[in-house]
Design a protein around this nucleic acid. Sequence first.
DNA 1: AGCCATTATGGTCTTGGCCA
DNA 2: TGGCCAAGACCATAATGGCT
Length: 270
Amino acid sequence: NGVYWMDIIDKRPDGLVVISNITEGAKRKVESIQMAIEPDLLYPLLRGRDVKRWHAEPSAYILMAQDPDKRRGIDEDEMKTNYPKTYLYLKRFEAALRERKSRGVTDMIEEGAPFYTMFSVGDYTFAPYKVVWREQASSLTGSVAFTVEDKPIIPDHKLMLINCSTREGAYYLSGILNSSPAKFAAISYAVEIQFDTHLLQNIRIPKFDPGNKVHQELAGLSQNAHEAAARGSETGLKGLEQRIDELAAQIWGLTGEELKEIQTSLEEIA
DNA sequence: AGCCATTATGGTCTTGGCCA
DNA sequence: TGGCCAAGACCATAATGGCT
């Protein structure tokens, strides 16, 4: 992370950006440097702490020198030709990157993949519409993540993500995941504070159907909730969440009484 | 300044799909 | 059917934050 995570501190007239790598808090210590590189491979970075219920706001940038199809770093020749400064930046950290212990990357590098190869990056990583939730949190915490300045937001590995093909579908999914029945189901079986990808194997969420009135309303309310959260309007959220809960209950065939019970139990747990 | 709880990092361990 | 391995699930512990 100390190598790939960075702040942009200046944009130069020649198109390059001056970056500074984020070394604070990293467990693996790397040198802190500033350097001008090409902006092309920089993407908005979403960290676990950047995600709240209904709100996701990237706090930094991440360098993604990765080919999602080949599932390894972009070829070194291509880097040298197209992104020479970025390549030089990575080269400065070659030793640290080669010392990584994850078998996932070390095996690939041993087989000839570039030394800056990352693990578990696919086309879904670059999807323009995503639903994310925190892997580690005391309750299920989800939000949508779209694009910033035409670049898809890249969630770090402490966030689980689902790539969606439409904005509306993402809002729908985020809405139903943040509903009380979903949160209740998740917390009932999740190990300690871990919410991993298994969520959708344990909670049956119907695929978004744009023609379905309930799905539509859920998507709309979820969008409103995201907007309310962005404004910091807790009171506005209350009413929206109640209506979202009612729609979720309808989807899962829960009675009003059962929903009330779930909501009360969730409050007690909190 | 110290304690305690929570969060985040950087891993390791397990699983399930694929291929021979 | 069994071995392989990338992806996914899970974990130990460092860092941080809140409280007294």
